[in-house]
Amino acid sequence: MSKQKFTTLYVLFSVVPFLMLVFPLFEIGNRATPIIMGLPFSFFWVILWIVITFVALIVLYRMDPDNEEEDA
């Protein structure tokens, strides 16, 4: 994977979760009525996007062209 394509993916996977947690896109999940795993939906929404961001950044770390592990 080229460095430019990796940088584009990194920015995309960093900005999209951020946008989902700020106004006005947070309004999509800003509800209290559905209870998921004992949490109001708005709290679950925030935790969900934190987990999605964490997993996406781990995947991007593994795909990083500068993170080549040498065989010992």
Rank of each mutant, 00 (worst) to 15 (best):
M1R: 04
S2F: 03
Q4D: 12
K5Y: 01
K5V: 01
K5W: 00
K5R: 06
K5L: 02
F6E: 03
F6R: 03
T7Y: 07
T7W: 06
T7L: 15
T8A: 10
L9M: 06
L9T: 01
L9Q: 05
Y10T: 07
Y10G: 06
V11K: 07
L12W: 02
S14Q: 06
S14L: 05
S14C: 04
S14A: 07
V16L: 11
P17Y: 10
F18C: 11
F18L: 15
F18G: 15
F18T: 13
F18P: 09
L19Y: 14
L19D: 10
L19E: 13
L19M: 14
L21T: 14
L21P: 14
L21G: 09
L21N: 15
L21A: 13
P24Y: 13
P24D: 13
P24G: 12
L25I: 11
L25G: 10
L25Q: 13
L25F: 13
F26H: 12
E27L: 14
I28C: 09
I28S: 08
I28G: 08
G29W: 05
N30F: 15
N30A: 09
N30W: 08
R31K: 11
R31P: 13
R31Y: 09
T33K: 05
T33A: 03
T33M: 04
P34C: 10
P34Q: 06
I35Q: 03
I35K: 03
I35W: 00
I36P: 02
I36T: 02
M37P: 00
M37E: 02
G38V: 00
G38P: 00
G38F: 00
L39Q: 00
P40N: 01
P40W: 00
S42M: 05
S42P: 06
S42Y: 07
F43K: 13
F44E: 09
F44V: 05
W45F: 06
W45G: 12
V46Q: 11
V46S: 12
L48Q: 07
L48V: 07
L48D: 10
L48C: 12
W49S: 13
V51P: 03
V51L: 12
T53R: 05
T53N: 06
F54K: 01
F54R: 02
F54S: 06
F54D: 10
F54I: 02
V55G: 03
A56W: 00
A56K: 04
L57I: 13
L57M: 11
I58Q: 14
I58G: 10
I58Y: 10
V59T: 11
V59R: 09
L60V: 14
Y61S: 15
R62D: 14
R62N: 15
R62C: 15
R62G: 13
M63A: 12
M63C: 11
D64E: 11
D64G: 15
P65Q: 09
D66K: 08
N67L: 01
N67I: 06
E69S: 04
E69I: 04
E69D: 08
E70G: 03
E70T: 04
E70A: 05
D71I: 05
D71H: 01
A72M: 09
